[in-house]
Simulated assay, not measured.
Amino acid sequence: MIIEDLKIPNHIGIIMDGNGRWAQKKGKKRNFGHEVGAQVAENVIEWSADLGVRYLTLYSFSTENWKRPESEVNFLFKLFVKYLETRMLKIISKGVRMRFSGRIDKLPLEVQNACSRIENKSLNNDKIDLIMALNYGGRQEIVDSVNKLISQGKSFITEEDILSNLYLNDVPDPDFIIRTSGEERLSNFLLWQSAYSEFYFTDVLWPDFDYEEYIKALKVYNKRVRRFGGINRSDENGCE
């Protein structure tokens, strides 16, 4: 599955958008789209591991998703637990380490317990870190980091202080962020970490996101010149 001469990002973040719209276009209920989308996520995890991606963060449930109908939220949690307890066991057997980022302690106890079990079972895996952003919000993560520092008695806060108190402070910033469904915004995803990420937006709805589309996105990434605020010698004006 390795693609010759393709530079693989160390850390990829994906905003998996469009499950509900995909289902509605097919005359189905939104939950059907979430089920298909979960299978696509499983595929992307395996492709990423095979391609050599070291960190993969999937935006699974945002702090804003609580605004959805209660029945849909409950279905999402049940589907998530089901996948953690069945399909993810196959995934971690291939060397995937499962981690979670977000306000996990605010989730239903059943979800918290499932997260803890799968995290512990995969703790020693080192092929790829799969990070599920669950009950996650970028603004909330920054606020939580600052509040930790305040509780420690900090009167002056630096960038390093905030960074060291983020949910997963050992995970490097994402090199590449992909969003499906035609929307072109971050929607509160990894706001601190994405300062110098490259972005890729596609009109493809998440349930239709296949291997060819993934490779297409990676090829676009390979054409980007990352300067991190510095000067590229080919630039006449020295701007980023």
Rank of each mutant, 00 (worst) to 15 (best):
V146A: 15
D144V: 04
I131M: 13
V96P: 04
F176R: 05
K154V: 07
E198M: 09
I92T: 13
T158A: 11
N169H: 12
I91P: 02
Q152D: 15
T180C: 07
L166D: 06
E159N: 10
W206F: 12
Y167C: 09
K127I: 15
E141C: 05
N124T: 13
V96D: 07
G153T: 04
D144R: 10
D208L: 08
T158N: 08
S93I: 00
R139L: 03
F156P: 00
L123D: 10
N124R: 08
N120C: 06
R97G: 01
L134Y: 03
D210Y: 09
I142N: 00
F156G: 00
Y196T: 12
N120M: 09
V143F: 05
S155K: 14
M132W: 12
P108H: 06
S194Q: 10
S151K: 12
Q193D: 01
L123N: 10
E119A: 14
W192G: 11
L168A: 01
G137D: 03
I91V: 15
S155L: 12
Y167I: 09
L134Q: 05
F176I: 13
V111K: 10
E184Q: 15
F100H: 11
V204Q: 02
M98Y: 02
L205M: 14
T180E: 01
S116K: 15
Q152C: 13
G153Q: 07
S122F: 09
D170S: 10
T202M: 06
K148Q: 10
F176S: 08
R185F: 04
L163R: 14
D210M: 10
Q152H: 13
L168T: 00
G138V: 07
I131N: 14
Q152Y: 13
E183R: 04
D210C: 11
E110Q: 10
Y200N: 14
S164E: 09
D170E: 12
K148I: 12
V171Y: 02
D208Q: 09
L186A: 12
Q152K: 15
Q152S: 15
M98D: 02
E141F: 03
S194R: 05
P172Q: 09
Y167P: 02
I118Q: 08
S101P: 00
P108D: 08
L186P: 03
